[in-house]
Design a protein around this nucleic acid. Structure first.
Length: 455
RNA sequence: UCCUCAGUAGCUCAGUCGGCAGAGCAAGUGGCUGUUAACCACUGGGUCCGCGGUUCAAAUCCGUGCUGGGGAGCCA
């Protein structure tokens, strides 16, 4: 007989004479006559209560079961007379698969996120992290489902790249050379030149958007920045759609549709797990999720945003400087206090943005877009791409990048170039937004940050 | 990398003016109970983050290093 997962059993409409469940004991309460066990198998947030009668032949062995132990239970699914659960299992047989000794780190009480980070290998066994990682899995599926339904093609862009200056941040070197070499000769290296881990699949994705029409990537991304914040990790996942025949407005329409779809999907398909976060992690979360689903996201130009900040009368720690980057506090003010919902910030000065962003007619700004959301800040960064060969070449020169290295990228603007646009959405930041978790290290199974690669 | 706060029992934390190391929970033992963050009693449990200094005496003051939180920059 096959084991049944607890999420299926709890959906049962009627008692079942014989079931087998296997899982880990969350807590146990003993008496002389019987023992109550809360069993969790990871299939859902809820446990199922097992009643083991003292008549069972191995009752003394059952007495030794501790929090964290693994058991297999065969028994009858019956309606529970007790409060707190509809169903329970009266065990006919309890097999102890393994006993967790007394130094099992997870107690049946709330632990701090900081402590659980030190036991990242065990934290998915807690309610909060179990719920989170189920949601993470569902969101990954929802991304593919969304794009498949819209006719986008899923593209696998290289993880090892040869371009060393994509401009998206410091890179991790990939080499087979002896690491103690002081002056590595990259012509002797595996690829015959310097190689790094990707910081973005965008440039590759553009090539495929200009062939397959609409494409997206969804995969790992690496940044070797010495960032120590609650919003940055060295290895993270990013969704990068790239759309041919699409301008900046189409890009924003798409981003809004994507985010609304994903939040709706989470609310509808992960309701029990989401409820844990709305009830215990962030009391304001329900309201925010409603806003994300129902409100039109604001759209405002960089210039208008700067004016708005200057006129706001708000005391900022850092001055608002026209032409400069907005500080975190400025972005938070816009998203959390002024608009109180996500906003697209567009048309940034070209000086503070990447070379591939399309130059606007004013010659000063580029068709860039950032989506700023409450609490997180930048969730999405993208642009309409510069499709005009001459303008793109001039921009490369301006920022001091070599045309030779980008020969294939420039080629795409020589042969059938079309307006196109895309963006990158941080998958972990999306999860933070949906769950209210405030530290990105807590939405990654085994997070990588400067000085930390345990597990 | 910078600013800032913290590090005391397995976990969460208290520890006053520098003067014997504490609580709750967890764990162990026993009891009780259709229990459900169960309950009651008892017991065990400490490199007070490391190193150095001041002092008769340091968890406490000073220096330094490490680790972690929050904020900033970089960005997704």
């Amino acid at each position: 007989m096959e084991r049944v997962k607890i999420n299926r059993l709890l959906e049962s409409q009627k008692p079942i004479d014989k079931v087998i469940v296997k899982g880990w004991v969350r807590t146990k309460r003993d008496s002389k006559e019987f023992s109550f066990m809360e069993l969790n198998d990871g299939s859902c947030l809820k446990n199922i209560q097992i009643i083991a009668d003292s008549q069972l032949e191995n009752y003394s062995q059952i007495g030794a079961i501790t929090t964290g132990s693994a058991v297999a239970v065969e028994g009858r699914l019956v309606e529970s007379p007790g409060k707190g659960q509809k169903w329970e299992i009266h065990a006919d047989k309890v097999d102890v698969i393994s006993i967790a000794p007394e130094d099992y780190p997870l107690q049946k009480k709330r632990h701090s996120d900081e402590f659980l980070r030190t036991v990242a290998h065990l934290r998915p066994r807690t309610n909060k992290y179990g719920a989170l990682f189920r949601i993470r899995s569902e969101m990954a599926y929802a991304i593919h489902k969304f794009y498949h339904s819209k006719g986008f093609r899923y593209l696998h862009t290289p993880i090892i790249t040869g371009s060393d200056c994509e401009g998206a941040g410091e890179m991790f070197r990939v080499t087979t050379l002896n690491p103690t070499l002081e002056n590595p000769n990259f012509s002797k290296d595996f690829f015959g030149c310097e190689a790094n881990l990707t910081v973005s699949g965008q440039l590759s994705a553009e090539m495929f958007a200009l062939a397959l029409g609409d494409v997206y990537t969804f995969g790992p991304t690496f940044r070797a920045e010495n960032s120590n914040t609650s919003r940055h990790v060295a290895e993270f996942w990013m969704v990068e759609p790239e759309m041919a025949f699409c301008d900046l407005n189409g890009n924003m329409d798409h981003a809004q549709e994507l985010l609304k779809y994903l939040v709706t999907y989470a609310v509808e398909n992960c309701s029990d797990d989401i409820a844990l976060f709305t009830d215990f992690v962030d009391k304001e979360l329900s309201k925010l999720l409603d806003t994300l689903i129902n409100e039109e996201y604001a759209r405002i130009s960089y210039n208008d945003a700067v004016e708005l900040l200057l006129k706001s009368g708000k005391k900022f720690e850092y001055k608002v400087v026209k032409g400069g980057d907005l500080q975190s506090e400025h972005e938070r003010f816009l998203a959390e206090e002024y608009f109180k919902k996500p906003l697209f910030l567009i048309n940034y000065p070209k000086e503070i943005k990447a070379f591939y962003m399309r130059l606007n007619d004013d010659g000063k700004s580029v068709a860039a877009v950032d989506l700023l959301v409450p609490r997180i800040g930048e969730l999405i960064g993208g642009s309409q791409r510069e499709e005009r060969l001459d303008v793109l070449q001039k921009r490369l020169e301006e920022v001091g990048l070599s045309k030779e290295q980008y020969w294939w990228y420039l080629d795409s603007r020589r042969f059938g170039s079309v307006p196109h646009a895309g963006f990158g959405m941080g998958f972990e930041r999306l999860l933070m937004l949906i769950t209210g978790i405030t530290n990105i290290r807590d939405v990654v199974p085994f997070p990588r940050t400067p000085g930390n690669i345990d597990f």
